[in-house]
Every structure is written in C-alpha cells, then in structure tokens.
Simulated scan of single mutants.
Amino acid sequence: MSKRIILNETSYFGKGAIKEIVNELKGRHLQKILVVTGENLLKFGIATKVTDLLKNDGIDFEIFTDIKPNPTIENVKSGVESCKKFNAEAIVAIGGGSIIDASKAIGIIMTNPEFSDVRSLEGLAETKNKSLPIIAVSTTSGTAAEVTINYVITDVEKKRKFVCVDPHDIPVVAIVDPDMSAPMPQGLCASTGMDALVHAIEGYITKGAWELTDMLHIKAIELIGKSLRQAVAGDFAAREEMALAQYIAGMGFSNVGLGIVHSMAHPLSALYDVPHGKACAMMLTAVLKFNASSTGNKYREIARVFGVQGLEKMNKEEADKAAIDAIQQLADDVNIPKHLKDVGVKESDLKFLAESAMADACTPGNPKDPTLDDIINIYKSIM
C-alpha cells in the first residue's frame, strides 16, 4: 500500500525567520493580507514584529483577533466575514494552534463556500480547492499547526470539539522562528511542550506509522526529553530545540494520525475549557498503559531516547514501565496536574466524555481498539 507525505511548500526555521514573510508575499504577488492573531500577542509586541514588517514594506493588511483559545464555529464565521469584507488575498496567521486552526477553517471556506456551514468540515471534508494562501507563524512550541493538514474547532452549542482533516488546508509557508515563541510564560511552555510530546508519541505508535514517520517522531521525542525542563525554566537554547522538536513531530503525525490521548483530551477542552496541551498531557501516561500490549518494542525505544539506563536487562513489561515512568516524571517536573478532579471534571460527566471520545476522528488511529467502557475506565483511573 502506498504511503502519503504532505508538507508545506516552503518552511523557514531559525532566529529571524519572520523576515522572509515579506519576500514570500511579494514572490506570490499577494498584496491584501488578513492578519489573524490574538489580542495579547499584539498587546505584548509579539505579533507586531510581523505587522511592522508588513507596514514598513507597504503591504496592505487588516488585523482580525476575534478568536478564543479553543476556536469556535462563531469565531470562524466572523473571520470569514472579515476576510470577505477586506477582499483578502492571503492570511498571515500569528499564534499557536487556536489561531492557526481558525485560519485554516477561514481559508478553506473562502475558497470552498459550499462548506460555509462550519460543521460540514468535520472529518475528511471533500473540498475541491486549496485554501486561501496561509503563511503560518508559530508562537508556541507544541501544536505544529503550521505544518499539519488538520485543525480542531469547538462546537459550543453541542459542547464538543471536532477534528477536520483536509490536505487543502496546509499553510503554503511555515515560519518557525524561536524569537516568536521565546516569550511564552512557563505554564504555556510546559503545556504546549507536553502537547508536542503527545504528538510525537501518538504518531510513533499509531496504526498508520511507518519508517519515515518513525524517524521523525523518535527524534522529536529525544529532543523534547532533553529540552523541555530547561525550556520551561526559560533557557533560550532549549526553547529553540523545542521549536524544532514540535515542528518535526508535526511533519510526522499530520500524515499518520494520532490516537485516544487526543480523542479523550478534546472533550475535556470542550466541556471544561481545559487548555488542549494540558488536557493531552494529563491523559498521556494513562493511555500509554492501556496501549502497551499493542505497541511492540516502541516503548523501549522511547525509554532509550529518554536516557533510561539498564534497558538491555529489562523484559518488555519492565521496559514499557520504565518508558511510562520517565514520561510521567517529565510531566511532574513541568507541573502538569495528575488528576482530572484538579481541573473540575465531574464523575457524572465521564460517560458523556467517553462517548465524545469514541466518536472523535483520532480514535481509529489508536494502536489498540478501545470500547466505551475502556475509555470510561481510563478516565476513572486518573480522576
């Protein structure tokens, strides 16, 4: 069976990479730009690093900031209206996963107006046209939304998040400039960094994994294991490593899918507004325990790149436990909550959460097929 890899047309990585935005816009003859970003990114002078470049070069742009941390259907509709009103030719998205995810939905609807009902984009939407060109500038080191072909939107009315997968939505240009993510507060650095680790691990063990994506994911896992603690502490070199690690992980999982860590995290964000990275991090080791019997020797490889000693003397069960323990220690060290009750989850909601997780687009990729009771029991194990 053939394997497919989809990546950005062009990517830039490194300090000062944002300076390439103007050249990319000019080279593509794009003059009217909708800048999609967050109010705080403007307030604290992060997004303005990009808008100043556009202003200094005389590029016409308008700023759109009406996006919540878990972007909603209404946010997308509002963005589409702003895009139409301005007659935008392209989108420059400056932010983390929420900003870039919303930009993908806006860009797709602009070129595929028959999908203006945002819910119709759920799953594998059969759009005909490529998105309005998007240049994605990441300001966190976790989601890798700048390189993926998927995005997540929150349906407030139905209290759920839905995943959209569409090769037409990938940004044409990805900008991963460590200067843009360096100002992250410690808590955001921790949760987005753990999100990157979840992407790398789930992509590594998913049913669709193969040699090329394994290579990407295991390198990302290694970089995160070595760098996340120091990145959270504020070390710039470690934050630069994390920016690279999350992008490498994105190259992989975008093409092979994820698993039930994400399926179970999505309803936590939708119902309790738990930040996505934190929700994923909280679910990670509980799901890894469930999946252990269906992952071959991959946990041993994870333990190896995490620096676990004495693996050659361990049997599979011992190596699996060593990997899970090392991952949990990293989560503890960067202050990820251990229990669902710590973020307000009620036991009476577990059935609804589990039903939402079972219906999630990420569930089929999990290495071990879960039942509804399995999902409920995993939630209960960390209540």
Score class of each variant (00 low, 15 high):
177 D>T: 11
178 P>N: 11
179 D>N: 09
179 D>W: 07
179 D>L: 14
180 M>W: 03
180 M>H: 06
180 M>T: 04
181 S>M: 13
181 S>P: 01
181 S>D: 05
182 A>T: 04
182 A>D: 12
182 A>L: 13
183 P>A: 06
183 P>C: 02
184 M>Q: 14
184 M>C: 15
184 M>W: 08
185 P>F: 11
185 P>L: 10
186 Q>K: 15
187 G>W: 11
187 G>R: 14
187 G>P: 07
188 L>R: 01
188 L>Y: 00
189 C>R: 05
190 A>G: 11
190 A>Q: 08
191 S>C: 03
192 T>D: 01
192 T>I: 05
193 G>P: 09
194 M>E: 03
194 M>Q: 09
194 M>G: 05
194 M>V: 13
195 D>C: 12
195 D>S: 10
197 L>W: 03
197 L>N: 10
197 L>E: 04
198 V>E: 02
198 V>L: 06
199 H>A: 10
199 H>S: 08
200 A>W: 10
200 A>L: 10
201 I>M: 08
201 I>A: 03
202 E>I: 04
202 E>P: 07
203 G>H: 03
203 G>Q: 00
203 G>Y: 02
204 Y>T: 00
204 Y>V: 11
205 I>H: 09
205 I>W: 11
206 T>A: 15
206 T>H: 09
207 K>R: 15
207 K>D: 11
207 K>A: 12
207 K>P: 01
208 G>M: 00
208 G>Y: 01
208 G>T: 01
208 G>H: 08
208 G>E: 08
209 A>V: 13
210 W>D: 13
211 E>Q: 13
211 E>R: 09
212 L>H: 06
212 L>E: 12
213 T>S: 14
213 T>K: 05
214 D>R: 12
214 D>A: 07
215 M>D: 08
216 L>G: 00
218 I>E: 01
218 I>N: 08
218 I>L: 14
219 K>P: 01
219 K>G: 06
219 K>Q: 14
219 K>L: 10
220 A>C: 07
220 A>Y: 00
220 A>I: 01
221 I>S: 00
221 I>P: 03
222 E>K: 14
223 L>Y: 04
223 L>H: 01
223 L>E: 02
224 I>W: 10
224 I>Y: 07
224 I>H: 02
225 G>F: 14
225 G>E: 05
225 G>D: 09
225 G>C: 10
225 G>H: 11
226 K>P: 01
226 K>G: 00
226 K>N: 08
227 S>I: 02
227 S>N: 04
